[in-house]
Amino acid sequence: MEGVTEKTPFGKFARRYDSILVFYILDHMFCFIDIDDFTSVTVKSTPDEVEKIRQNHSSVSSPLNQSLRHWIQLNLNGDITDSEIYALVRRSYDIVKAKYSKGIRRKK
């Protein structure tokens, strides 16, 4: 995805978070994963979409230290297909990019 950067920013808060890899677009996070674990991915979404995903899939959980309304943790070995996970990661990217692209256009 165009313009994506990645960092491991949470290790400065606690060493146990050194392995959380965060993906950014326009300096705002849209996805993260524990690279020592690889059992789930956390993505941003809308409150309505989060509710729909929760209703349709049992392999979702609440993300750590994130807004439950706007973030959802997708368990990779559950009932969500790989193609659905890829689509949700892309949707997360699109949500964040659209939101923060508006601010860049206003500054110009």
Rank of each mutant, 00 (worst) to 15 (best):
R54G: 12
N56T: 13
V41Q: 04
I85C: 08
K7S: 11
E51L: 15
F30V: 03
F23P: 05
P47L: 09
S62L: 08
S58I: 12
Y93M: 04
R91Q: 15
V22W: 00
A14P: 13
D36V: 10
T81W: 03
F30I: 02
T39Q: 15
I25W: 06
T46V: 03
T46I: 01
F23R: 03
P9D: 01
E84Y: 09
K99R: 14
I72G: 00
N65D: 09
W71T: 04
I33C: 01
Y86D: 10
Y93V: 06
R90E: 06
E6N: 06
R90F: 15
I80Q: 00
V89Y: 04
F10P: 03
A14S: 13
I33M: 07
E6H: 04
M29W: 12
I95L: 10
L21W: 10
K108I: 12
V89Q: 01
E2P: 15
D37Y: 14
D37P: 02
P9A: 08
K108P: 10
N65A: 12
Y93E: 01
E6Q: 09
T8A: 13
D48Q: 13
T81G: 04
W71N: 00
V43C: 07
L68P: 15
G3S: 08
E84D: 07
T8S: 14
S92H: 01
V96P: 00
D82N: 09
R16V: 15
S58T: 14
A98V: 06
P63W: 01
I80F: 00
K44V: 07
Y17H: 15
R90V: 12
L88A: 04
V50A: 13
S83K: 12
M1D: 11
R54A: 08
D37T: 05
Y17T: 02
V43W: 01
A98S: 13
K12D: 12
F32R: 11
F38N: 14
K97Y: 11
T8Y: 13
M29Q: 09
E51P: 02
V50G: 11
N65P: 13
I35K: 07
M1T: 10
D18I: 01
S40R: 04
E49A: 14
Y24M: 03
F23G: 05
E51D: 11
P63T: 01
E51Q: 11
T5E: 03
G103I: 05
S59V: 09
R105F: 12
F38L: 15
W71S: 01
K12A: 13
D79K: 11
